[in-house]
Design a protein around this nucleic acid. Structure first.
Length: 141
DNA sequence: TTACATGGGCGTCAAACGCT
DNA sequence: AGCGTTTGACGCCCATGTAA
């Protein structure tokens, strides 16, 4: 996660190679921009390019909550916030799912190792029991 | 070579759970 | 109650193996 010059930055990855970035300006106002994002083959977000509002490229949407007056604008704002929240949730969950699978794989590997160890121990105990039985039989002869 | 089956990995959603 | 985390279930995609 990079910093937009001033204030905290949060972002949610989007599938189409773009992301919406929310950042807080020095005066505390929230800003949103969609920016191109680089995603590694592993799906990790690697970098954001954040431009000054005056140099936003074509296709980049920027919105600010300040000055919202009409109910329609309010609705759009809340829809946008909801979408942003969903995207952030999806990103978190994607990472969590990867972690969960990794953990599960390690757990299974661990169980398999334990099975192998217990099988060896079992074999050794069976062998030991056999030897003790032999010893006992010969003693009684 | 091609069509199909199978297995593994991934993203997403939803439910359950724990924490504050 | 609301929020974040974890994980099972589902569908999709891709790689590999196999029979025709």
């Amino acid at each position: 996660m990079t910093n937009a010059g001033q204030g905290a930055v949060t972002a949610a990855a989007m599938p189409a190679g773009t992301t919406i970035v929310q950042y807080t300006q020095g005066d505390g106002s929230q800003q949103f921009v969609t920016v191109p994002v680089s995603i590694s083959p592993a799906g990790e977000v690697q970098a954001y390019q954040i431009r000054a509002p005056s140099s936003l490229p074509a296709g980049v949407v920027m919105a600010t909550p300040t000055g919202i007056t009409s109910p329609q604008q309010l609705a759009e704002e809340s829809a946008r916030k909801r979408e942003l929240r969903l995207m952030k949730n999806r990103y978190k969950n994607r990472v969590a799912a990867r972690e969960c699978r990794k953990k599960k794989k390690e757990y299974v590997k661990c169980l398999e190792n334990r099975v192998a160890v217990l099988e060896q121990q079992n074999k050794a105990l069976i062998e030991e029991l056999k030897q003790l039985k032999d010893l006992y039989c010969h003693k009684n002869e």
